[in-house]
Nucleic acid binder design. Structure first.
Length: 862
RNA sequence: GCCGAAGUGGUGGAACUGGUAGACGCACCGGACUCAAAAUCCGGCGAAGGCAACUUCAUGGGGGUUCGAUUCCCCCCUUCGGCACCA
């Protein structure tokens, strides 16, 4: 082949990209390799916005490095890509530009595929997934029906989050700081009928299994743990007193709960200090107990305010006029409606202990409610007099009858036991996690396969009628409800049960549903098979060995996916508990300290960079500039540095290509382990090897080892790359200077130098695959894809001398040279010989103690 | 407010289980090549003092453990992230 003198990245990258594509190099198709060890490498799939941005480049460069490395290590690697193609932007574009979401999405996917291919990622393109395709969401609809049957999907009326700008409801996880996660608009509360997935049924398992996810960052595990928010405590029943200021409650005997309020507390030790009951404005009893017409207006006002915003700026409430009996003190305590009590946590009612809870304290102060102290700090500290009334930590019980003198923990236990014995309470566990609201009042999503029949009510579609295809010919006004509601031909349906008229569900599913199982679908080889995936494939490929994506999905996507896998497991699809074994959350790409965004004008366009420097350079910089979990500060001259290295690398190879042309790679070193030896024709004697070469081969060995370690989960590619740069510098130094000193290269030397260069090429291949494919071909005339990770060679290199740091009284005073593995005595001799040391240590007799770390350090204490 | 992570040269970042702080880049400075520039190559590069060899100080600040601390412990400061009336 003809070798270009100059590095022409366009030509080289184009050549290898079309080779990879034509030969389908990265497609996993061989079913007979199943006895090989597998590796499932997955990056979070993108939304097809139309353009790849630097965040994607980073995410996929990391994934590609891992995938390519594992192939070199002999694994059979599944490395797929797809598009999370349902979602609002397509619909918004349709409204704004009068485009069709199908067309818009299709075009975007097309241009993004081209960009991904131009970056040279080693995807198995045969496995591509497009979630807005009926062949994909058909299975999602099937899962929905099966979950419905199992009670894991259900519909209920409740207060849900509503985003006015996206014109749809949102799941709890999708509200950040009281705002919509997508558009940042303020979220209000609406009372609506909605579909839910019963993720709470798995709360305990989702929590417990976090402990097994050792390959996840602690940060993400903690976030999920806090999100699930398990707390154990006590449910206590407070009887409502018969006599009230308002004239007594009317017990209509409809429910026996009418004379009892159940509360939940984690601080049962403070129950003697409960001086009022606070109930949520949405609590059933709030209406019932509020008789007074003025107070009814109060209640309406508080409810109204709670619906406008999730934020409570000030504590607000009123006395209902009724009292409850504290079962421990027997005293009547007032029942308040309070805006800070959440309806959807616990029972929607609390016992309020103003002396020991900040919120209750604030409320009690505002409404002049009695404050009784029942916990004494273990150590009284000097505090301001007002603060004296509020103490929220644990301590010793006072004013608590027979429980006086106990410490909080013990008291909680005893009080719970007592309550259970007396039938006035029971131990209870509550979770902060709420069921996953999946209804979206939008068009561009997976249709929910149910109808509403006038006679039969809600009826699920027959499985054989799936997919329920999202209609194409839709007009977008951008106003009011989902366009589906106006589509007569879509809405009007036949009831699967009675055949009568039925109205179709017009809500679509949250797009997080598609991303909750796409990693399972990738495993299916033949997409025409009438199944979502094969159990056998799932059991072989899953769990994903390495998952890579942004930390912004720590709770949403990653929690939903874990739930989905458990739910599908319980629908008997497979036996798998967790989808993702190892998780890497990469940092953002930032410029001038802030996230790249159009509004800040600091966006770096990957296309322009590729045009100017090539894909390898962009990838190299992205991996070199920072370890993956950290934010990456963009730096234009840093990219030039990466480009410089790649040019130098290319030049080095072509400069020496001629020397190594006829040197084959099949050789062995005398004394090498037996199983390789017999196949070698050429055995090198250690004595034939130049010392300088032994040295760089030794250094190479250290880098191979280090790279293996990093690729085993820490993935600090930046250190591998910097060591490789050093290796190449050493090589150049050796061939320009060392050879002159040591004389002509023997054949043995050439074997080793070629091995050296090939090894460096292979080490760098995961990061800059195009130039490594090219240079490997130049040196060997074959494809690097058939190559394996380099073995460490023992050339018999012995580092005869080593540097030893000498400290006197803990301060570094000199660096001395000693024989490798020299004993302490001889090292001390050399140290005492040094002028620098002698300045501090005049006589050997003045040494009190020495500490010696072999080949490293001698610490002298005088 | 609560929980968590991180603070190292001008800059991005190295430093495996406590053992030579600043690897490898970038920027900058000097030199070579050139009519000149770019590119490339060679050299320098934490701070302060000194002609110098060298000395002192230095991993956000303060303390501690240790012969020895960027690394372990305690307190504080700053930045970032998560949760935010979850009873």
């Amino acid at each position: 082949m003809e070798i270009d003198k100059n590095y022409d990245f366009d030509k080289i990258e184009g050549k290898w990209q079309s080779f990879w594509e034509k030969e389908n190099v990265f497609s996993v198709k061989d079913n007979h390799l199943r006895n090989k060890k597998k590796f499932y490498c997955l990056e979070m799939f993108p939304y097809p916005s139309g353009r790849i941005h630097m965040g994607h480049v980073r995410n996929y460069a990391i994934g590609d490095a891992i995938a390519r490395f594992k192939r070199l290590k002999g694994y059979i690697v599944l490395h797929p890509i797809g598009f999370d193609s349902f979602g609002l932007p397509a619909e918004n574009a349709a409204i704004k530009n009068k485009t069709n979401p199908f067309e818009w999405t299709k075009n975007n996917i097309g241009s993004m595929i081209a960009q991904l291919k131009r970056l040279g990622f080693s995807y198995d393109w045969d496995k591509i997934i497009i979630t807005s395709d009926p062949s994909y969401y058909k299975w999602e609809q099937l899962f929905f029906l099966q979950m419905l049957r199992k009670g894991l999907a259900y519909k209920k009326i409740s207060n849900v989050n509503w985003c006015e700008s996206c014109h749809t409801t949102l799941a709890n996880e999708q509200v950040e700081d009281g705002k919509c996660w997508r558009c940042g608009n303020n979220v209000t509360i609406k009372n609506m009928e909605q579909w839910f997935f019963k993720i709470t049924a798995y709360a305990e398992e989702l929590l417990k299994d976090l402990d097994n996810l050792k390959g996840w960052p602690d940060k993400v595990r903690t976030m999920q743990k806090n999100w699930i928010g398990k707390s154990s405590g006590l449910s206590v029943f407070f009887k409502i007193a018969d006599f009230t200021e308002g004239g007594g409650i009317v017990n209509d005997k409809k429910g026996e709960n009418d004379d009892t309020i159940e509360i939940f507390t984690t601080r049962a030790d403070t129950i003697f200090g409960a001086t009022f009951i606070a109930i949520s404005p949405f609590h059933l009893l709030a209406k019932k107990l509020t008789k007074d017409s003025e107070k009814k207006i109060e209640l309406e006002r508080i409810i109204h305010n709670s619906l406008i915003s999730k934020d409570i700026t000030e504590k607000d409430g009123f006395f209902t006029g009724s009292y409850a009996i504290n079962p421990f003190t027997g005293k009547n305590i007032p029942i308040y409606v309070a805006n800070f009590v959440l309806m959807d946590y616990g029972t929607g009612a609390i016992m309020s202990v103003p002396a020991h809870d900040t919120r209750d304290y604030e409320f009690a102060k505002k409404y002049n409610i009695e404050i009784i102290r029942v916990i004494k700090p273990e150590k009284e500290q000097g505090k301001a007099p007002e603060d004296d009334l509020l103490y929220t930590l644990q301590g010793k019980l006072v004013n608590s009858g027979e429980f006086n003198g106990l410490f909080s923990d013990e008291a909680k236990e005893k009080i719970a036991t007592y309550a259970e014995k007396m039938g006035i309470g029971k131990r209870a566990i509550n979770y902060r996690l709420k069921d996953w609201g999946i209804s979206r009042q939008r068009y561009w999503g997976c249709p929910i396969p149910v109808v509403y029949c006038e006679k039969c009510g809600m009826v699920p579609l027959n499985e054989s009628d799936l997919p329920l295809v999202l209609p194409n010919n839709v007009t977008f006004t951008g106003k009011g409800a989902s366009p589906l509601e106006k589509l007569e031909f879509f809405i009007n349906a036949k009831c699967p049960k009675c055949g009568g008229y039925a109205r179709r569900e017009t809500d679509t599913m949250d797009t997080f549903v598609e991303s909750s199982w796409y990693f399972l679908r990738y495993t299916l080889r033949d997409r025409d098979e009438p199944i979502p995936f094969k159990k056998e494939d799932i059991m072989y490929w899953l769990p994903v060995n390495q998952y890579i994506g942004g930390v912004e999905h720590a709770v949403m996507h990653l929690l939903y996916s874990r739930f989905f896998v458990k739910a599908l497991r319980d629908l008997n699809y497979f036996e798998l508990n967790e989808p993702f074994e190892n998780l890497l959350t990469q940092g953002m790409v930032v410029k001038n300290g802030s996230k790249m965004s159009k509004s800040k004008g600091n966006v770096v366009d990957p296309d322009e960079l590729i045009k100017k420097f090539g894909a390898d350079t962009v990838r190299l910089f992205v991996l070199f500039a920072a370890p993956p979990e950290k934010d990456l500060e963009w730096n234009d001259s840093g990219v030039e540095g990466a480009s410089r290295f790649i040019n130098k690398f290319y030049k080095t190879i072509i400069t020496y290509a001629d020397i190594f042309k006829d040197i084959d790679n099949d050789f062995g070193i005398e004394g090498e382990s037996t199983e390789i030896k017999h196949s070698h024709i050429n055995i090198i004697k250690k004595s034939e090897i130049n010392h300088g070469i032994k040295k760089i081969i030794y250094q190479l060995g250290q880098v191979i080892e280090k790279a293996e370690m990093e690729m085993d989960g820490r993935y600090h590619f930046n250190t591998i790359i910097s060591s490789s740069m050093e290796l190449l510098n050493n090589f150049n130094d050796y061939v320009t200077e060392g050879v002159q000193k040591e004389g002509v290269l023997s054949r043995a030397d050439k074997y080793l130098l070629k091995y050296f260069l090939n090894s460096v090429i292979v080490i760098l291949y995961p990061f800059i695959p195009h130039i490594c494919s090219e240079t490997f071909e130049i040196l060997n005339g074959s494809e690097i894809e058939n190559e394996l990770w380099p073995k460490i060679l023992d050339t018999g290199y012995v580092q005869e001398k080593c540097n030893i740091a000498v400290q006197v009284n803990g301060k570094m005073r000199d660096l001395i040279v000693a024989d490798l593995n020299a004993g302490e005595d001889s090292v001390l001799e050399i140290a005492l010989d040094s002028n620098k040391i002698r300045k501090y240590v005049a006589h050997k007799s003045s040494i009190k103690k020495t500490i010696y770390v072999k080949n490293k350090l001698l610490s002298i204490i005088i």
